[in-house]
Structure formats: structure tokens, C-alpha cells
């Protein structure tokens, strides 16, 4: 991509007079296309959730202009409080083990890919991203067969969901750690080992503290992937398990749009809040 760098070319070019703007066109200036597209996209992204928020706090079904609440009431949040808390607890019961398992499995893979040379390394580097593109419905179908009728038929559905989430989340943990390890000088680790530290101790005391921000980024990404997962959970879940996306889906499917909106907004607030806190933590740790 050497052609992308045009600094040298620009320096040698003679300065030509800027042509006068063409008159007579009714079209807006070309440069307006970019902010206009951006504004359109932003409205497209924020208006539907704002409408759902209005619906969840409106004291009746109809909204003013279909967007704004006529009167504010938090009754729906009070009514659906236990269901919301239950879905948050269920999501956390799946997301936390998923994050821990992804870290324990992903960290050694990232380390091996960056630091070690071994036969099959290229293939493994490709396979790391396979769960990212593999159709979730096919993955969930295979897991459903294994855990409902197959060799793991007696295993708890919680375990099946955690394993399903872990498989699809692993690339989100492995990639940031790979990027961080590539920036850490191997001499740091070698120095610790030359002073008598075991390989594990050298890694834990010299490398791990440096890559903590990237590990936290991985944690945030895996957490976000897990708590927002709907497609895998829907096939593996049982009536007793109601994660946040499943609770939202069930509330809307039951025909209660306003209740669904309240559950959706409360769970959204929780999901986005936790991820923002993790992001802030990453920035703090980087700065420190």
C-alpha cells in the first residue's frame, strides 16, 4: 500500500490556481454528502431506542407524534422489576463464567501464537477466528443435539449455554491479547528468566501486568458478546433460564409492547453501563 502515502508527491507538485466554483447547479455542495450521511445514520440509530424509552415511561399506549411520552410513569418498571432483576441475574450467571473461561483458554493460545514457533501455527491462527464467522444457528444446533440428546444429555443447560458463548467469544479475548503481546519486548521476559524466575513466574510478573489493559478490553468484548447473545441462547435455553435478550423477546412476543419496552430499556441500561465502566477501567489502567 505504498501508493497510499502521498506526502512526497504533494511536496513536489506545483501549486495550480483553484478553479472558480461552478454556478448554476441546484445540487448541494458535494462535501455536504458526508455530514448528511452521518447525521442520517445517527438519527437512524438513536431514534428507535428513544421511542422505546418513551413508550416504557409513558402513562398510556399512544405517544405524542409517535415519539414523545404524553405523561411520565414508572409503573411498568416497578411491575416488571422482579422479572428484570431475574434476567440480569441469569445473564450474569452466564456472562461471568464465559469471561473467566474465555480468559483461561484464550490467554495461553495468544501466548503460543505470538511467542512460540511450532508446526500448525498458521492453521491455528486461522482457526482462532473460525467461531467469529461460523453461523451461530449451526453451532447452536450442534450443541443442542449434543446436550439434549447426545453424549452430554445429562449436563445442565447452563453449562451448554456457557460453552456456546465461550466458543463464539474466544476470538474477542484472543485478538486483543495477541495485539498486546506483539508490542511487549521478549527481552523483558528473558531478563526475568535469566534472574532465575520460572517461565510461568516470568510471564506472570513481567508480561501480564503490561497486557492488563488489553485483557480488560477482551473482558469487555466477551462480556458484551455474552450478555447480548440471543441466537445461540434461544436454542439452548429452557423455560427456567431467561437471560436479558430472551426476557425482552418473551415480553414483546407475549403482546405487551410497553412491558417489553421497559424490560428492554432496563436491561440495555445495565448492559451498556457495565461495558462503559469496563471501558473507563481500561483507559484508567492504560494511563496508570
Amino acid at each position: 500500500m505504498s501508493g497510499l502515502s502521498g506526502t512526497v508527491v504533494a511536496e513536489k507538485l506545483p501549486t495550480a490556481p483553484v478553479p472558480a466554483p461552478r454556478r448554476g447547479s441546484f445540487l448541494p455542495p458535494f462535501r455536504w454528502i458526508f455530514p448528511a450521511t452521518t447525521l442520517g445514520l445517527i438519527l437512524f440509530i438513536i431514534l428507535p431506542p428513544i421511542t422505546l424509552l418513551s413508550l416504557s415511561v409513558n402513562d398510556r399506549f399512544d405517544l405524542v407524534w409517535g415519539i414523545f411520552p404524553a405523561g411520565v410513569s414508572f409503573d411498568l418498571y416497578r411491575e416488571s422489576g422482579p422479572a428484570i432483576l431475574r434476567s440480569v441475574a441469569h445473564s450474569m450467571r452466564i456472562a461471568v463464567p464465559t469471561v473467566i473461561l474465555s480468559f483461561l483458554v484464550g490467554l495461553p493460545v495468544a501466548y503460543a501464537l505470538v511467542r512460540l514457533r511450532f508446526p500448525g501455527r498458521g492453521l491455528l491462527a486461522e482457526l482462532v477466528n473460525l467461531p467469529l464467522v461460523f453461523p451461530p444457528i449451526v453451532l447452536a444446533f450442534g450443541l443442542m443435539q449434543m446436550f439434549k440428546q447426545g453424549p452430554f444429555a445429562g449436563v445442565s443447560p447452563w453449562v451448554a449455554i456457557v460453552l456456546g458463548h465461550t466458543i463464539v467469544s474466544l476470538p474477542f479475548m484472543i485478538q486483543p491479547i495477541i495485539a498486546a503481546l506483539q508490542r511487549v519486548d521478549i527481552a523483558v521476559e528473558d531478563a526475568a528468566r535469566s534472574l532465575g524466575a520460572s517461565p510461568l513466574r516470568a510471564f506472570l510478573t513481567t508480561v501480564l501486568p503490561i497486557i492488563v489493559p488489553s485483557v480488560l478490553t477482551g473482558v469487555a468484548l466477551v462480556f458484551a458478546r455474552s450478555i447480548s447473545d440471543f441466537e445461540i441462547t434461544l436454542l439452548l435455553t429452557t423455560p427456567e433460564i431467561s437471560t436479558m435478550p430472551i426476557a425482552i423477546y418473551q415480553a414483546f412476543e407475549s403482546g405487551s409492547t410497553r412491558l417489553g419496552a421497559a424490560v428492554a430499556m432496563a436491561t440495555n441500561l445495565f448492559a451498556v453501563g457495565v461495558i462503559v465502566i469496563l471501558e473507563v477501567a481500561v483507559r484508567r489502567v492504560r494511563w496508570w
Binding site: 431514534l47 428507535p48 409517535g66 458484551a224 440471543f230 428492554a264 436491561t267 440495555n268
Partner: peptide
Amino acid sequence: PSLAPAVTIIFGILWFMSPTGP
């Protein structure tokens, strides 16, 4: 949209385009 559960985004659009939506 990548942080919030996808179901929320989709139900938001469903309501937005519904007969009673804006």
C-alpha cells in the same frame, strides 16, 4: 447497536415502523 442486545434494536425498529409508530 453493538453493545445493546440485538433484540432491543430490532424491537425498537419494529415499533418505530409500526402503524402506531412515528
